[in-house]
Amino acid sequence: MTADPAPAARVLVLAGPSGAGKSRLARRLHAAHGWPVVQLDDFYRNGDDPSLPMSPQAGLPDWDDARSWRLDDALGALETLIRTGTAEVPVYDIATSRATGTQRLELGGHPIVIAEGIFAADTIAGLAERGLLAEAWCIRNRPWKTFARRLVRDLAERRKPPLTLVRRGLALHRLEPGIVRAQEALGAEPMTAREAEARVPRLGHNDEQEGRRRGATT
């Protein structure tokens, strides 16, 4: 019996609350290993999309609702990148709530693709079904530290009006333990960024084991 061809790479999912350090960790891993990074927040829907879920604040989209982004398109881009070696992904401007263009990502022969974003845990089941999942980590921190990092970042990037950012940040601070539990239930293992970096060497070890397993079934 011939097994399906092994994928050229697998996806490391970096989930976690907004401001926990996912993007910072992804940049470090890219710099150290060259692994391409797919920023899943770029798959948000445009601000005028009629299908956007609305928050209790009248007239404002609920950007913390998973329905505000395009899961199927994100999964399709990840699979295309791995199966073909290249993929076109959107470039999204959070300040104006819309995609402003696209960029081409290349696999470049790397065994790992990083997928990071606040809804990254929602990709776990689909990636596992496609045989594309390496591991899934939920990056967490102390809630007040996450709040401070998120607020500094959002103010610097002028993502939304300052009062909106503060209110959203306080709400997310209250919800953070539940966010971590929910992402853990989806299959993401909670850990700090430091703990995550200590786990990186085992990713290559797992790829070697998978290659031997597939070779034995052909």
Rank of each mutant, 00 (worst) to 15 (best):
P61N: 06
Q103T: 12
N206V: 12
R158S: 15
H33L: 06
W69Y: 10
E176D: 06
A120G: 08
H173I: 11
F119Y: 10
A156V: 09
T102V: 13
Y92F: 14
G101L: 14
E197M: 12
L163D: 12
A66F: 09
R45M: 05
P162I: 02
F119P: 01
A120L: 03
R83W: 02
P201D: 08
E195P: 02
R153H: 10
A198S: 14
A125H: 02
Q103C: 11
E129V: 10
A188T: 01
N46D: 15
P90V: 08
D49A: 02
R70T: 09
H30G: 07
L133G: 02
D62I: 04
E79M: 03
L151K: 06
A26N: 05
S51P: 03
P161F: 00
S55T: 08
A8M: 10
V37A: 08
A87N: 01
E208K: 06
S51T: 11
S55Y: 07
T192Y: 01
M54D: 05
A31F: 04
G108K: 03
A185M: 11
P56G: 09
P190T: 05
A6T: 08
E106G: 12
G117P: 07
L151F: 10
S97P: 05
P190R: 02
L127G: 01
R83D: 14
P111K: 06
H30K: 07
F43V: 03
C138P: 03
P5W: 07
P61Y: 02
L165H: 04
T164F: 13
H30L: 07
W63P: 06
